[in-house]
Amino acid sequence: MTMEENKYTAADYKSDQYVRWCPGCGDHAVLNVLHKAMAELGVAPHNTAVISGIGCSSRLPYYMNTYGFHTIHGRGGAVATGFKVANPAMTVWQVAGDGDGLAIGGNHFIHEVRRNVDVNLLMLNNKIYGLTKGQYSPTSDRGFVSKSSPYGTTEDPFIPAELVFGARGTFFARSIDVELKISQEVMVAAARHKGCSVVEILQNCMIFNNGIHNFITDRETRADRTIHLVHGEKMLFGKEMNRGIVQDGFGLKAVTLGEDGYTIDDVLVHDAHCESNFLHQQLAMMDGHELPLAVGVIRDVESLTYDEEVAKQVDDVRAKKNIKCLRDLVLSGETWTVE
């Protein structure tokens, strides 16, 4: 990736297509921030690809002036994997919803994370199927009432971060559609991370699930129910920034500085680069109730990427062998001549 500052503006990444999402949909904000993040990164539009599956958010590639592919339901990750391996010079973004990425595409999702393919994966989580008009999704809470669960669901949801850690993910970040600055910050960090970078964005569906994230996003209480994690900084939150996360035995606890004897020295410093994902998981599982929901880059560690290792293996084998073309190969085996 070559960084050439200010060479491109957000407008350079916008296509001429009319954006068809419902007015007020959280996807609009994500799209606008993505244009800005790409401008900040400075990778040329023709060296950028955006690949998606099916769903409201998967329409996003049409609104990009990059190379783009709106594929089939759930398969964006598999298409993106083949694309990146075939053409590692491209910067690849993938857009998925909670249904596309975690239900029909759940298998591809965990394997893409496990392989650590160098793809920046934006997962827009609105806990609902919007395009099919309002069925519960794999991230809907137990008991959630929808058209396909009129008496409430009888199943527990996935928490995307847990799947990422279960698949030994190297990057996980989270933002909220209305947090434009944090969204841009995590998208840029995701692109700069080499490997599969999963960014969960809590996104509001105005029509079928309006207010599903209100507990977190409500302006009055947001400062107390979320914490913006930044690598190397103390884990502080609250309107007055006087609350902090401390270690409590095997778990975490939210405390108020100056109360119960807690001081700033007790507050944890975020380490997104720590190899062990134990604390990252604890942080990612905070849900805004006992502990604030974490946004920002939660985990960001370097590891071997699938696409680079495939290319490297090809180079290594080629350097060692004398076979340069098919004919060399065939003639190197057992042959006989007929006169």
Partner: peptide
Amino acid sequence: DLGVKACQMEDEIAGVCSAIGASFA
């Protein structure tokens, strides 16, 4: 040795879809 990238994917669907991605690329 001849530059072939052969990927064993997670299922048949990923097999064809990764190939479609590679074709697009």
